[in-house]
């Protein structure tokens, strides 16, 4: 089948397919960043993570509807503000969830898993009751539409580039925050040795709450970014939850670099296999590959070098 193309066509396909892979990479990384903080740092399995993304997406949709109804002049600029609003809304709901549910379950990780699954069902049904079962799309500003063409046969969509830029920015932000700020230092200290952190005066309970809140906020931003490339439905979050977890687990839970690397690897593998294998078979192949890798290297590709007391 590969021989049916000429050299130039193959090159174009490679570029477009590579770009599709990069686009998927930024999507996976965006989803995994928040989870890498919540699951990787705190060890809390938040199965409602996808719903926090949907929450961010719905927030953008609300902003868009508000703007187009009350202040159409702001239409070109609202999206940037909406991203911040999405962060705040998701972080606030995350705060509420941590305070009312998660903090009772830190000692029982398996139970957190079931409780957050319950939470995800409730959030899904809430979305369905409030926004309806149909998928919604916010009105995007003009500058996000269209595509640019470096050559006549290559077509690169602008929204994809936007998502990629946002991903880079957010990844850098997370890295800076975790490794260059005092709060980030507290977070990492709490993960490594909770008792000792307590002893040197870090308020570990507050750190937990903040970490969860931050992870949810990042999920909200991810959701906001997704509105530029697809529509949002009540169950769009749950569709990606397994992929997201696999990205984090494959990367090695406590490693930001690992998360980035595994998101890149999974995205490229998936976009290549989807081109050669029909339908969902490509995804099945990639997922099976990940599971097999995880059976051989259970701690992920970049395991943490730190010994932790478990």
């Amino acid at each position: 089948m590969m021989f049916a193309y000429t050299g130039a066509e193959l090159w174009n396909i490679a570029v477009m397919q590579g770009f599709a892979g990069l686009s998927l990479f930024s999507v996976l990384l965006l989803m995994a960043l928040g989870l890498a903080i919540i699951f990787g740092q705190m060890g809390v399995v938040n199965l409602a993570h996808g719903e926090f993304m949907a929450l961010g997406a719905y927030t953008v949709y609300l902003c868009s509807t508000l703007v187009s109804n009350h202040a159409p002049a702001l239409q070109p600029y609202y999206f940037v503000i909406a991203i911040f609003v999405a962060f705040l809304v998701a972080a606030l709901v995350g705060l509420l969830v941590e305070w009312s549910l998660i903090r009772f379950l830190y000692k029982r990780p398996l139970d957190t898993l079931l409780a957050t699954w319950g939470l995800s069902l409730i959030m899904q049904q809430s979305f369905r009751s409030i926004f309806g079962a149909r998928e919604v799309t916010p009105t995007l500003p003009e500058w996000l539409m269209g595509s640019f063409k470096p050559t006549p046969s290559i077509d690169i969509p602008i929204n994809g580039v936007f998502v990629m830029g946002l991903t880079l920015l957010l990844t850098f932000g997370v890295w800076f925050f975790m490794f260059r700020s005092r709060t980030g230092l507290h977070m990492r200290a709490t993960v490594q040795n909770r008792a000792m952190s307590d002893a040197v005066g870090i308020n570990t309970k507050l750190v937990d709450r903040f970490t969860f809140c931050l992870g949810c906020g990042i999920a909200g931003v991810a959701g906001a970014a997704f509105t530029t490339i697809g529509s949002t439905g009540p169950d769009s979050g749950s569709r990606y939850i397994v992929d997201t977890f696999l990205v984090v687990v494959l990367g090695g839970t406590a490693s930001l670099l690992g998360t980035i690397a595994s998101a890149f690897g999974i995205a490229q593998a998936q976009s290549i296999s989807e081109f050669f294998l029909e339908g969902t078979m490509g995804k099945v192949a990639v997922l099976s590959g990940i599971v097999i890798v995880l059976m051989i290297r259970p701690k992920g590709l970049f395991p943490s070098k730190v010994r932790t007391h478990s």
Binding site: L114, G118, L119
Partner: peptide, 9 residues
């Protein structure tokens, strides 16, 4: 969802 949360907590 309430059942999941209630039975666990």
């Amino acid at each position: 969802g309430g059942l999941f949360i209630g039975v666990v907590v």
